[in-house]
Design a protein around this nucleic acid. Structure first.
Lengths: 198, 198
DNA sequence: GCGGACTCGGTGACTTTATCACCGACCTAT
DNA sequence: ATAGGTCGGTGATAAAGTCACCGAGTCCGC
């Protein structure tokens, strides 16, 4: 529990599918994005690890003694602590605080997965994109993401995102720019997000 | 840990979305299917709980203190134990065996979710259906499921399943019957399952 | 300032997948 | 038999995803 936190620059690939698993990652600062990539290059964002959370991709690997099955990329500069497996198991037995933290991370990840499955399998594309925009928007109602990134976020294709954004723009919901999207009518976007529509 | 196991007949709905959560379910015998249902009635099978496993839907609810977000239905007659939350937390602290079991269940569930997302988001329909058939097939190469059930299993629509099954049948891969499908050429089906194809 | 190399996004043409509605076959019970 | 149910096949249509291409913007190095 007392390993020195390490700095990791944005863009670093912390692990990729097939890598053997070295230890647990406990994130102190920054955002770690975990994605699944298909053979044809298509990518889906599974979830993000936020400060205070354990990366459970790591967790799942170590428990089952298997390799990573997804990819973890630092979205921002990270400050993280690597916990060796033995320390992890000891802390799980001895430290109730730590245990509760792990449980919470697990539960949150479950919720993320359920949301993702619901989005991809049960929700029409317009609502899916609207949800992604609302989820990624900062306080200034700006989403800093390319169409390709939004495609990974919605489990769809870039061209599909382009077209739907154009439709949203025509309705006055958003204003697209190179590399970002500005939300103009949040209320209407929320309404769109609420219509499963497929 | 020592509550009396209870019998639950096949078809019982153990919990549905929005229900409050009462306690942990530890499954001794049978199969519990956990699904997500859309407003329009469409359903996706998230995972199955098998004997010896804890139902983690329950888990996730109790940790976060939230209601169920999915539906749990007994696929067969069940023999299950209900563990009150307090007992669960005590056992997690004191009983290493129990703890390991919980970890394993969590890890397995994660793997299930990743498979599901990969299937739905990154895999073409023929491969998806082939995988579902192989997954559900008994030793006699028979899959006891209606087209509607296979649709829930693949996160697709019934009509889509019907058509793809007809194509498989035309290629000699399977023989469809009312309420079941027989696998005729397992090797070819495995090949189909391996081609992401979309 | 110019010329490549690259990323980003728009678009047309097309395929695949999904949806909707309807119908006939089968199953079961009265 | 017949009525009511589930099950599966099919045509028409719509939505979503794919592929390929192009032009505009950006980032260099020179």
């Amino acid at each position: 529990m007392s390993a020195a936190p390490r700095h990791i620059p944005a863009g670093t690939v912390l692990f990729r599918a097939g890598d053997p698993c070295r230890g647990f990652v406990l994130l102190r600062e920054g955002s770690l994005r975990v994605t699944l990539t298909a053979a044809n290059g298509r990518e889906v964002v599974l979830y993000r690890v936020t400060p205070g959370e354990l990366c459970l991709q790591t967790y799942s690997c170590l428990v089952q003694g298997r390799d990573y099955s997804a990819r973890g990329v630092a979205e921002t500069d990270l400050l993280a602590e690597i916990i060796p497996a033995a320390d992890f198991h000891r802390a799980m037995g001895a430290d109730e605080c730590f245990r509760i933290r792990v449980f919470e991370a697990v539960a949150r990840r479950f919720a993320d997965f359920e949301r993702l499955v619901e989005d991809i399998a049960l929700t029409g594309f317009p609502a899916r994109l609207a949800r992604a925009l609302l989820r990624l928007a900062g306080h200034d109602d700006t989403v800093n993401a390319t169409h390709a990134q939004l495609a990974a976020e919605t489990g769809s294709g870039r061209a599909v995102v382009s077209r739907q954004l154009a439709r949203f723009a025509a309705q006055g919901l958003v204003r697209p720019d190179r590399g970002s999207v500005t939300i103009l009518d949040r209320a209407a976007l929320v309404r769109t997000a609420a219509e499963p529509g497929a």
